[in-house]
Amino acid sequence: MKPYLTCKNISKTFNGSPAVESVSIDLLPGEIMSILGPSGCGKTTLLRLIAGFETLDEGEIKIENNIISSNQTHLPPEKRNIGMVFQDYSLFPHMNVEQNITFGLQNYNQDEKEFRLQEILKLIQLVGFEKKLPAELSGGQQQRIALGRTLAPKPSLILLDEPFSNLDAVTRKEVMSDINQIILESKTASILVTHDRDEAFSIANKLVVMINGKIFQMDNPGNIYNLPNNIEVAKLVADCNFIKGSIQNKDVVTDIGSFRYESTDKQISDKQIVNTLIRPDDFITTYDPNGSFKITAREFHGPYSISTVLSYQYGFSLKFRDQQNVSFPIGTNVNLIKTNNRKLVVFPK
């Protein structure tokens, strides 16, 4: 399948500091992409470049092989057929729901407008809210209307800039699954930008990890989770511990044992010292009065708890998820047992 959107080596600098550096991404028709990155990594700028709100310095952006942005051409945003949903909803405060949703339907006649309005209201589950003003609605409702407004003119691509970050924890979960549902049903290609890994994972077919203006990894979410390219990506996509290890043959030898390893780095050689990624669910703790580890702290997270485990011998601490219903008191001596046969990921030090 030919990509719908292609960004090739695009760069953008603000007052001398690069915001986006030589970024290349492809998006297939109907594909849903998440861009995950810490705040200030340039992911919003990337989105604004695609939408046409910023001009780029280098590279080119193409839609179905037509250049829409390069350092010579710039198609204005209103001619790109790209919809955008903003973090702060940005509904038109002086217009009611109906006027907001039909704002982008200037080429529709009255009947078509009414028909599309009802379609959208059904899709966002706000039938009957036509005459309400944005100020009368909750944050979650406002964000659904913002999405409905964007979907109404049937854009070929939707960009979502941190669409859930202004919502409180409870509404966020609800609105997130609603909006994922709506986007899936609309079958529109989408790019979601977020700093929250749960949001990024929840919908994407393709995940892009962006740090300091550069793309660190681009793959399906499972692959990135299981085999991150480097430590920064690993930290972004999951909670993790790192301990020192050395490569011996097909194993990595660490202070807590020897394990099979894997890495995206083909250069790793025998005897090399590496950083070993240990996930909180890679090991469980077992009671052992003579164990070489001691539980020193516990964080309660509701459905599970995380225990901090101190190694007597080496002095480092690791965090592990407690087994269901088994929480040893703080101060208990324990041992660690690997629970799965997943290979440990290592990174060159």
Binding site: G52, F53, P77, R80, N81, I82, F86, F92
Partner: peptide, 10 residues
């Protein structure tokens, strides 16, 4: 962002 929304709505 409000004005940009309007622009992205053609």
């Amino acid at each position: 962002r409000i004005e940009e929304s309007a622009m992205s709505l053609k």
